[in-house]
Design a protein around this nucleic acid. Sequence first.
DNA 1: CCATAACTTTAGTTGACACTTATATAAGTA
DNA 2: TACTTATATAAGTGTCAACTAAAGTTATGG
Lengths: 109, 109
Amino acid sequence: MDAALKALAEPRRRTILRLVWSQELPATDIADRFRDVTRSAISQHLAVLKEADLIVERREGTRRLYRANTQTMAELRSFLDDYWTSGLERLRDVAEASEADERTTRGRE
Amino acid sequence: MDAALKALAEPRRRTILRLVWSQELPATDIADRFRDVTRSAISQHLAVLKEADLIVERREGTRRLYRANTQTMAELRSFLDDYWTSGLERLRDVAEASEADERTTRGRE
DNA sequence: CCATAACTTTAGTTGACACTTATATAAGTA
DNA sequence: TACTTATATAAGTGTCAACTAAAGTTATGG
């Protein structure tokens, strides 16, 4: 979930995600939409999105087709919702809990 | 909105946001929750959150009290919702539109 | 006014990250 | 097999972001 948020922080990646939201597209088609950036850069963005589980890759011959993993977005949405609304009454615990949170999320990077 | 997403990409800042979600807290109290980071660092995080309009600052004597701006979070939520659901039928336009988007958001940084 | 408290701001360092160019790999095609 | 197409991966570069330490700012209390 941390990875997803980080991935979405980059505007270019949001654009890519939107492109493959409702249809599967090969890497080339995606890269072609961007004029001021190399295929290589797009390929790397795709890797990040895939790592964050925001897109799914399917191979077909030499091509790789990508499409958005809408479920992860849904999960992210409810994560954000929960993150702020749930457990706010036990605020005294948040400090330790969140600090632990820091360490584990950082450790996972 | 871009700033808000970027601000939230950093786990430490999410923790801070959660701390001031339902109550106002002075900078010192916030900083005290984190052991492996300086007050200075927290101060800088607070500045980023404030810049992104995710928190609000109120001065009282020498203290500065912070609280979350829940409205911005609400806006972010609906932004994310809209971002993917709306306008997906006009996918042919997305490329140009989003590329323009890139340039303006980047220019604003 | 001077000291202290509560913060921020500045300067400098380090690591991460988006990018480019060049090279590698893998699958079709002549 | 050699060539091409579609793509990733490697290596290197410049910029930006998070951090520390130190100096600066603003209000309050002797």
